[in-house]
């Protein structure tokens, strides 16, 4: 990847993170931690890897993105708005009555949302259905399902994991946002899902372990998944919950609360550091 391409993705991720903060501050509730941890993965998918057309959200050959960890809706909404699926003005009305951005994704109200999620564990099976349909129809679109690490405590995930391997869904990519925290505490203490890579491996998946904040690693993993035949791929992305905002990073309390005005301003200031214009100036010196 060229430096310019990397800077482009970094700036997209920055925009997404800033929008997450302002959206949640405006809404007064919501989930910053798991939205921020997934921002780089989502930026790489929406602004580099996926074949999508915001003007045609129902285009039959589009790649599909399913946010199985539906509480991270802000990261999806920020990406969809930035990509042009709807007006960025809508972001101001997250979680507000009579507006389209629901607390958790709703496919009936929001363009670009592929399936309503929020009750954890359901997205992977829906992705299986989309991937099976592609096989039946001979279409080459791909299906990406972003799951939370706490979410894989749901039994349904493993039913679906078994089915994806059984039906050899090599057009399906699961991405696990492995930030290590769930509402009640560290996942290892609440209900330890380890060894995660071995589990998916033993279920018949191709597993790639990456740093979920490193664009080279994210894109290499997505490209590797493209090449794998006969089995689905699980990208185990190690991430930092609250990534990008120092006082939210690795803090379980920031799973599901909105920043105050002061906290929001502080977060925006941090997220603005090293912004591209600033960087241009540095490069020029």
């Amino acid at each position: 990847m060229l430096d310019a391409e990397k800077i482009f993705l970094e700036e997209k991720a920055r925009i997404i993170r800033k929008r997450i903060i302002s959206m949640l501050q405006e809404a007064g509730s919501g989930h910053p931690g798991g939205s921020l941890s997934a921002a780089d993965i989502v930026a790489a998918l929406f602004f580099r890897h996926m074949n999508i057309d915001p003007a045609r959200p129902h285009w039959e050959d589009r790649d599909r993105f399913i946010l199985s960890k539906g509480h991270a809706a802000p990261v999806l909404y920020a990406a969809l708005a930035e990509a042009g699926f709807f007006d960025t003005k809508e972001l101001k009305y997250l979680r507000k009555i009579n507006h389209m951005l629901q607390g958790h994704p709703d496919l009936r109200s929001t363009p670009g949302v592929e399936i309503s999620t929020g009750s954890l564990g359901q997205g992977l099976a829906v992705g299986n259905g989309m991937a099976l349909a592609a096989k039946l129809d001979g279409r080459d679109y791909r299906v990406f399902v972003l799951m939370g690490d706490g979410e894989i405590q749901e039994g349904m995930i493993w039913e679906a994991a078994m089915a994806a391997a059984h039906y050899k869904l090599d057009n399906l990519v699961g991405i696990l946002d492995y930030n290590g925290l769930q509402i009640d505490g560290p996942i290892a203490q609440i209900m330890n899902p380890e060894p995660i890579a071995d589990k998916w491996n033993s279920f018949g998946w191709h597993v790639i372990v990456i740093d979920g904040h490193n664009f080279d690693e994210i894109l290499n993993a997505l490209e590797e998944a493209d090449r794998i035949e006969g089995k689905p791929t699980l990208i185990l992305a190690k991430t930092v919950k609250g990534k990008g905002v120092s006082f939210m990073e690795n803090e379980v309390d920031w799973h599901g609360k909105a920043p105050s005005k002061e906290e929001g301003e502080l977060a925006m200031k941090e997220l603005s550091q090293g912004e591209v214009l600033e960087r241009w100036e540095t490069l020029g010196k």
């Binding site: 399936i115 997205g123 099976l132 349909a133 039994g155 679906a160 089915a163």
Partner: peptide, 21 residues
Amino acid sequence: DMGIAEQSMIGTAAGLALSGK
């Protein structure tokens, strides 16, 4: 046949429906 995995069956059916089946 989704095996003895009814939740997976319903989710997969939803995905198939969203893809025109």
